[in-house]
Structures are given as structure tokens and as C-alpha cells.
Design a binder for these strands. Structure first.
Length: 289
DNA sequence: CACTTGACCTGTCCGC
DNA sequence: TGCGGACAGGTCAAGT
């Protein structure tokens, strides 16, 4: 469920919290599922390495280390990356709206301890997510990185790039195309539904059937909803929390996602929820055509 | 190659 | 209250 805005929110938080820190110990609780590298290799490679940067590509987080290696992390649906500093780990009183003070818990798969006493927890209830250690230079060779599409929030992303990708999709729907990471990076179920509502396009339409005007509108809405969500700290949905273990507030601004039965903000008719492209799909049948 | 479906997991919710 | 089953949704492998 974490999509681009949630992963970006985690990235920003983590970057402020852990860059410059030195790893003292790594603890892998769920290998090889959540962390396929050999445990002893991970623990020895991480020891004394310093965090130099936290980056993101699509929904993947990259924590660069001073050794020329990086931790590459995908949260998939229920993954969390939460940093707890020494004071919060050992001090009294914790805010109730945060996971800080409650970790590790039974979903904790990996712990990265730092010399200053802080700990980065990778939690993942459903074990779909993963962490792996790779030479930084080899990340781009991963199959996912080879095929993933453009970053929609970067300055260089233009509506014509979306048009070009959609034009060659002859048989698939616009919703399925938006969920395809090779078309645009980082869109998942929430932002697919939200941007299609904003563009007034029926999610079941064939991807290649959109007019230039509709593609332009969709392109703008993709950027609008994801930027708004980042501003709001990501969504509140399900398991998502930021790097400090707190929920975001985007879902309060959602216009169709999980709004089935509620009136459409534009025309007042009830939002429908159907099953499409293997996903719960929310839309307004009156104003999305 | 384009596209769809099932598998991977576990917690939650709904109906009986 | 317990229990079975549907559902949640990102990505990949396997199938059409």
C-alpha cells in the first residue's frame, strides 16, 4: 500500500534522522524471506559503515553506505521503516499516536542499530516486503530498475511521455496501465483511483482511447494528488507510518478511495466500488466517462 | 510481446 | 463466541 508519496515521506524523514550515523549492529530476524542476503555477510558488511544518503526510485528506498554498498528496501503492502532514537528507546513516556516505544514487535524483521543507540526497524506484517544489501553500482541492474518508468514528480516529466506509453497499450485499461510501473513509476491503487477521478476518466476505458486533453488532465492530476499527499505526510491507510512511526493525513483528502456510497464531490451521485484489474476500484459513474 | 491471473503472507472483518 | 472465507494490494512468475 505504500505508494510514491508514502515512500517519499519515509525517505525525507529517514534522511534527516539517520544520515551520518554509524551502524554498530544489524539483526536479521526473518531470513531469507525479508532479507535474502547471507546473515553473517550482512552483519559484517554493515558493521561500522556510515549512512551517506537516503534515496528513492519509484516505490523503492535506497540507503547508501560509506562502503560502496546500499540497503535496497521495498515496503510492498505492509512494510514500515521506523527510526527510534536512544532517548525514545530508554526514556519514559511515548506519544500514543506513534509506534515509538512499542518496537520491536512481532512484525519486526530487521533491526539496524547505530553507535549512538538509535535503531532503525524494518517491520512487515505480511512479509511481502524485503531488504537487501547490494553494491550501490549494481542497483540499476535489478530487473525492476531496468524496466521502471519515469518519475512523475520530476521536472523533466512531460505529459507527452505519458501519452507515448499509453498509445502502445492496445488492449488494457487506463487503470491497469497506471498501476504498471513501466508506464509511470510509483502509482498504486489509491493514487490511480484518485487521479482518474480528478481527470474525469472511467478507470475501465482502454488506455489508448484517451484524448490528448484527457491525458494532459490525467498527467496533471497524477502530479497534483501525489504532491498533495506528500504535503500531508502520506495516507493514513492501514499499516502505513512515516519514519517516526506516525500516520499521515492524506486519506482525509481522498475523493474516491474508500469512499464507496458517499456522494461524489463534483456531482453528488454515490461513489461506486467495483473489482477491476484485480483491484478494488473506486469511481463516479456519472462524471467519469 | 501484450496482457491476465495466481502466488506470496497475515490480520481483519463479515456472516452464520 | 468461534470459525470459515473474502479481502486488503505491489510485484513477479507463469499462463493465455
Amino acid at each position: 500500500m505504500p505508494e510514491l508519496p508514502e515512500v517519499e515521506t519515509v525517505r525525507r524523514g529517514l534522511k534527516d534522522l539517520i544520515v551520518g550515523k554509524t551502524v554498530s549492529r544489524a539483526l536479521v530476524r526473518d531470513s531469507p524471506k525479508s532479507f535474502p542476503n547471507e546473515i553473517s555477510v550482512v552483519e559484517s558488511f554493515l558493521y561500522k559503515s556510515k549512512i551517506t544518503d537516503v534515496r528513492r526510485r519509484a516505490k523503492v528506498l535506497i540507503i547508501d553506505l560509506s562502503t560502496g554498498y546500499s540497503l535496497v528496501i521495498h515496503l510492498k503492502m505492509t512494510g514500515q521503516l521506523v527510526f527510534v532514537d536512544a532517548e525514545d528507546r530508554f526514556g519514559a513516556g511515548h506519544p500514543n499516536d506513534s509506534l515509538v516505544g512499542k518496537l520491536p514487535d512481532r512484525s519486526t524483521r530487521v533491526e539496524i542499530h547505530f553507535e549512538d543507540g538509535g535503531v532503525l526497524y524494518f517491520n512487515d506484517q505480511r512479509k511481502f516486503g524485503w531488504v537487501r544489501l547490494l553494491p550501490t553500482a549494481e542497483i540499476e541492474l535489478l530487473p525492476f530498475f531496468q524496466k521502471v518508468g519515469p518519475e512523475p514528480l520530476e521536472d523533466g516529466y512531460a505529459w507527452e511521455m505519458l501519452k507515448e506509453k499509453l498509445a502502445r497499450r492496445k488492449k488494457t485499461s487506463i487503470k491497469a496501465a497506471l498501476l504498471d510501473q513501466s508506464v509511470v513509476a510509483g502509482i498504486g491503487n489509491i493514487y490511480a483511483d484518485e487521479s482518474l477521478w480528478g481527470a474525469k476518466v472511467d478507470p475501465r476505458r482502454l488506455a489508448g482511447s484517451l484524448t490528448d486533453e484527457e491525458i494532459k488532465l490525467l498527467y496533471e492530476q497524477i502530479r497534483f494528488v501525489m504532491n498533495l499527499s506528500i504535503e500531508k505526510g502520506g495516507s493514513t491507510d492501514r499499516n502505513y507510518v512515516d519514519a517516526r512511526g506516525k500516520k499521515g493525513s492524506y486519506i482525509d483528502f481522498a475523493r474516491v478511495f474508500r469512499k464507496e456510497g458517499q456522494p461524489c464531490h463534483r456531482c453528488g451521485s454515490p461513489i461506486l466500488k467495483i473489482r477491476h484489474a484485480g483491484r478494488g476500484t473506486h469511481y463516479c459513474e456519472v462524471c467519469q466517462v
